[in-house]
Design a protein around this nucleic acid. Structure first.
Length: 290
DNA sequence: TCCCAGGTAGATC
DNA sequence: GATCTACATGGG
């Protein structure tokens, strides 16, 4: 991978196993806009990026070589060897071959903890476009202005201090419905020493999950998404309706309890559970499995 | 009008 | 501890 300036742009050459469309549209994140084919605006913390991809070359605007090295390379998980992960997964179970082949450009993003927690609390009983709309609305109302791309304004998701000022009623005004008290509880906890992301990253999967589940509106599924997408636990295996469908189809051929699916995934995929989950989730959704 | 959506809390057995 | 249902909102 080579990163350098070209006029106002930052060019990244020789990226492999990375597809910006697959990575953003696979359902792991909600804070981006599609501008054109393989052309996106992405928000991470207080950073805003325009990124276009052509083959294994990325053309980035609104950034610098330094910022790309320090922020975006990490966010997009570009330092990890996905070829190796994919080979290991396929040798663990060759039935993953098709799902991986079609979605080999999916990388698991390293997202912001507060935003990921809030986003997945919102996600319950909602479709992805609705989740995106609510994240956008919260950001516009309570987050920092970051700039404009193609005439569209972008805002950061509110940080912990901004979240502290949001009341339950204010969440309700953003159409969060019955999730408003959940978001408020999450906001209070995000501002306590107990829930700093470094601590959660380092205490181990089981303890971190236990802590997350004490937040109202956070159950097994939401906790696993936060562990996987924001806290670096790549063994986490969130089981939602799509994963349930495809796992039942591929491995059980009958109605199966979520706990049993999780046990199976842990045994079969181990530390690579999160990657397997993401390939399977996107695969199931693209195939519109019912 | 009815049904469902990257689920979870609370009630009931 | 396993199962059932209400929950706000928006789109098909």
């Amino acid at each position: 991978m080579r990163i350098f300036n070209e006029g106002d742009c930052v060019i990244v050459e020789d990226v492999s196993e990375f597809d910006i469309r697959q990575t953003l549209e696979c359902g792991q994140c909600f804070h981006f806009e599609k501008l054109d084919e393989m052309d996106y605006a992405v928000v991470y913390k207080k950073h805003l990026l325009r990124i276009k991809q052509n083959g294994n070359v990325l053309k980035c605007e609104n950034t610098s070589v330094e910022e790309f090295e320090n922020v975006w390379k990490y966010y997009f998980d570009l330092d990890r060897d996905y070829k190796c992960i994919q080979e290991d997964l396929i040798s663990a179970d060759e039935r993953l071959l098709e799902a991986i082949k079609e979605n080999r450009g999916v990388r698991i993003l390293n997202q912001d903890f507060a935003e990921t927690l809030m986003s997945f609390i919102i996600s319950q009983n909602k479709q992805i476009p609705h989740i995106k709309a609510i994240v956008k609305s919260l950001s516009e109302k309570y987050g920092d202005y970051l700039g404009s791309i193609n005439g569209m304004d972008f805002y950061a998701f509110p940080d912990e201090l901004q979240i502290k000022k949001i009341s339950e009623e204010m969440y309700r005004e953003c159409k969060t419905g019955f999730r408003a008290p959940y978001l408020f509880d999450a906001g209070v906890k995000l501002n306590s020493e107990d829930f700093n992301s470094e601590g959660l990253r380092n205490m181990g999967y089981d303890l971190a999950k236990e802590k997350l589940i004490t937040i109202k509106g956070v159950g097994e599924k939401v906790a696993n998404c936060v562990l996987l997408f924001a806290l670096g636990y790549r063994n986490a295996f969130p089981v939602d309706v799509w994963i349930k469908r495809i796992m039942e189809h591929m491995y059980f051929e009958k109605e199966t309890d979520n706990n049993e699916i999780m046990r199976f995934a842990k045994e079969r995929f181990g530390d690579y559970g999160g990657y397997a989950q993401q390939y399977l989730f996107y695969y199931a959704r693209e195939k519109k499995m019912k």
